[in-house]
Design a protein around this nucleic acid. Structure first.
Lengths: 143, 143
DNA sequence: CTTGATTTATAGCCCTGGCTACATTTCTGT
DNA sequence: ACAGAAATGTAGCCAGGGCTATAAATCAAG
């Protein structure tokens, strides 16, 4: 415990929690966007059943999530047909995938086993800010 | 389990998401437990108003969260009186605080600015598994 | 001791993200 | 072509975590 301007046992400010909650509300969108992108690349299109299976939820749950993606302009679909990302959705998926990779690499770099890194990253990634992501990249680059 | 060890940046398994969702459902409990512990140390007791203010929510929201803590056996309180952690709740708070500190230290150690580290850690910490935490501690120790 | 301010409780609403059950549509194989 | 299988849609339920509005209790002065 040395180098602390303000003490280490610092009391969190309300904003921190507010921010964490905001990040959380994006998490589902991010996960589904990435998954749809995965499936599109793998199978040509993302079907609700496959999305649901991969996300570990039932298909009505996946349908709801896709509905939200559509509402947010991140995906499009026609009844009984596959789901496709909009440009914006694809861009989000790309950012998410990149961030995920960096997070996993960082974890591995500091000694976390690969498999654990993959698992933890799934929850962690949504809370990694741009500043932190940049720091991770810099750390990975200079070692 | 017996996953494929071959592919690295490959398709996430459903279990990862299931696990991330489970971690998320603990997050609120953890945050409130820690906050109640903070306030107990600071002011002798944790009042609903103070909890709410610190968490950045309205008091009915804090009341609900405390109700859940009580239901889970992590806290006790009598009407119109302060909230107190049970032994179990205090133990949780202690673990959470320790983990939070380690996460912040790790972030700072890899180059994340202190303030950013504090903010991101608030969301991150709930998804750091024991294995990863141990790895973080080892990394911090050997540098 | 009474009154007004503060604190806590409660009711009721919204949205999200799970679920099951059931209806409908599409796909597939004979 | 058509029947059965598979996929998708939809309805309705639950819990969680936000909120506002209102009621009740406690606290602090005067």
């Amino acid at each position: 415990m040395s180098d602390n301007t303000a003490d280490e046992g610092q009391v969190p400010t309300p904003e921190r929690f507010t921010q964490a909650r905001a990040a959380q509300s994006m998490a589902v969108l991010e996960d589904y966007a990435e998954m749809i992108d995965d499936l599109a690349q793998e199978m040509g299109e993302a079907r609700i059943t496959d999305i649901a299976a991969r996300m570990g939820v039932t298909h009505p749950t996946a349908t709801k999530a896709v509905a939200r993606l559509k509402r947010e302009g991140l995906a499009v679909s026609r009844p009984y047909r596959g789901v496709f990302l909009t440009e914006e959705g694809a861009a989000l998926a790309a950012r998410v995938r990149m961030r995920h990779r960096v997070v996993v690499d960082l974890l591995v770099a500091v000694g976390v086993p690969q498999e654990t890194a993959e698992i933890d990253a799934e929850g962690l990634e949504h809370h990694v800010s741009d500043v932190t992501l940049k720091a991770f990249e810099a750390f990975l680059a200079r070692r």
